[in-house]
Simulated assay, not measured.
Amino acid sequence: MKFSLIMATLGRSSEVERLFRSLAEQTHRDFELIVVDQNNDDRVTQVIERFKDEFQIVYCRSEKGLSRARNVGLQAVSGDIVAFPDDDCWYPPQVLEFVADKFGNEAELAGVTGCSVDGGNKPSQGRWSTNPLIVNRYNIWTCATSYTIFLRTESVRAVGGFDEQLGVGSGSRWGAGEEVNFLLGVLNAGYKVRYEPALRVCHPEPITTYDEKAYARGRLYNRGFGRVLSLNRYPMHFVLYVAARPAAGCVMSILQGDLGRARYYWIAATNRVLGWVDQG
């Protein structure tokens, strides 16, 4: 069972090397790394040169934009399973073996997803379900993020590609959600995807300080969240639910005197609604 791992990268060096190092340590060895380089320098090709004898590397270039890069990478896929590691994530040594075993034991599965943890094995990048689940359109938000999604190539081909108006670097108001939108396409096509909390991919927690950078990220990411809700015709009661959660967090943070956190939660709540009503 061969994996095609599509990694888009821009502006990172040491993080890319960390991912490469983790791939060199995988117990399952049948994989290719498809590097989609968006840099204007040779920082990534230098890393590739150091690891070119460790595993198969396919090098591509694309215009800026995460979804654009992944669509370029999809054209180079030759494996049975496709995944989308971030350039600042890393795989524990048995990740690919774990996923290969799941697919090997359950032929009806088109996808396996896992959760995100930081270097100390604590949850990162949001809330995560603690029990195994069959992924559906309502639990998907606590069952998947881009670098924890593994899909059979057949199901990837059925969806076609990522919406290039969504995601980091898209140039739109919708700075996230492209991977959930893509996975919803897999579900809508009738494929079965299972979430396994024992499948853990490492990624640093992106927000450690509530500053202007965090607020800008919150606007883009949550507006993208709302846009995906709109594109996939989620009912109003669910939109209100996902907006109410950070709104409640805002109130609690005010009561605790944490105004920075309160502001972030308010940004999250309002931009989820704005993304849902924004028709572009």
Rank of each mutant, 00 (worst) to 15 (best):
N71D: 08
G65M: 11
D163K: 08
G120E: 11
E179Q: 10
E164V: 06
F98K: 12
V186Q: 06
W141P: 01
G185S: 09
A198P: 01
T153K: 12
I207P: 05
V72C: 10
G119E: 15
G120C: 08
L187A: 08
G119C: 07
W141M: 02
G167P: 10
N131T: 14
V72N: 03
G160T: 11
G190F: 03
V95W: 09
F150Q: 00
G120W: 00
G73A: 05
V201M: 02
G171N: 01
V156E: 02
K122I: 07
G73H: 05
G126M: 09
V156D: 04
A100S: 12
E97A: 15
P204D: 10
Y147A: 01
Y191I: 01
Y138K: 12
A107Q: 12
G190N: 01
A110N: 13
D118A: 04
C202F: 06
Q94H: 13
I140H: 15
S155V: 03
T113L: 00
G104H: 12
S146I: 12
Q165G: 14
V95T: 15
C115E: 08
K122N: 13
P204I: 10
V180C: 02
A110S: 14
V95S: 14
N136H: 11
G104S: 11
I134H: 09
N136Y: 03
C89F: 03
H203G: 09
G120Q: 11
T208M: 06
L109V: 06
S67C: 07
F182D: 07
G185I: 04
S124A: 15
K102S: 05
Q165H: 15
F162M: 06
R127F: 14
W128I: 08
G65Q: 10
S129G: 10
A198N: 05
V117T: 15
S78H: 12
V99L: 01
P206K: 14
D88S: 03
T148P: 00
R173Y: 14
R194L: 14
Y195T: 13
L184R: 08
G171F: 07
S116N: 11
L183T: 13
T153W: 05
G73T: 05
P85Q: 03
C115I: 15
I207F: 04
N131P: 00
F162N: 02
L187T: 01
A69M: 09
T142Q: 15
V112K: 04
D86E: 15
N71C: 12
W90D: 13
S146C: 12
Y191S: 01
S78A: 10
G79H: 02
I134N: 05
G190C: 06
V99P: 01
A76I: 07
V201D: 06
A69P: 01
G119A: 13
K122D: 05
D163C: 00
C115P: 05
E205Q: 13
D163V: 07
E108L: 00
L184H: 04
N105D: 10
Q125I: 12
G161Q: 09
